[in-house]
């Protein structure tokens, strides 16, 4: 198994938003599973990481929480993306690509140095 990674500050929010965009309203367990799966289990989200992040996004108005019946008839809190959250996702994704490019450019050995 690949080594476990800590979630980088700020990236978790992006992952959550992206997950919700793809799958629609989802409960905490679903979000955690999806992120873990997507990361091929390199990321492990415990409650202390996941739930404060969810709450923060909710406070910022990017997601909305609602108690609903789950598929196996259990009451669960579902989180859904809001319009503001959609915009935030676009913005953050764009920024992330830019940052990633930038960092990649820095880390890639330049021709003259090789």
């Amino acid at each position: 198994m690949a080594p476990k990674l800590d979630v980088k500050q700020g990236t978790l929010a992006l992952m959550i938003l992206k997950t919700l965009e793809g799958l629609g309203p989802l409960h905490g367990y679903g979000i955690a599973r999806r992120i873990e799966e997507t990361s091929r289990n390199r990321l492990v989200l415990n409650y202390g990481t996941l739930y404060p992040a969810l709450l923060k996004l909710e406070q910022e108005g990017f997601i909305k929480a609602e108690w609903k019946q789950s598929e196996n008839n259990r009451r669960a809190k579902y989180y859904g993306l809001t319009a503001a959250g959609k915009k935030q996702l676009e913005r953050e994704a764009r920024e992330w690509y830019q940052t990633a490019d930038l960092i990649a450019a820095f880390l890639t050995p330049r021709p003259e140095e090789t």
Partner: peptide, 29 residues
């Protein structure tokens, strides 16, 4: 977020019940 957080100072008990149920659901699932 500041507003909701300030509100959170005063609604702590209700929030705690909510949270307990949410955790419970997560565990059960």
């Amino acid at each position: 977020s500041a507003l909701t957080r300030i509100a959170g100072v005063f609604t702590r008990n209700r929030g705690d019940d909510d949270l307990r149920e949410e955790f419970q659901a997560h565990l059960d699932m």
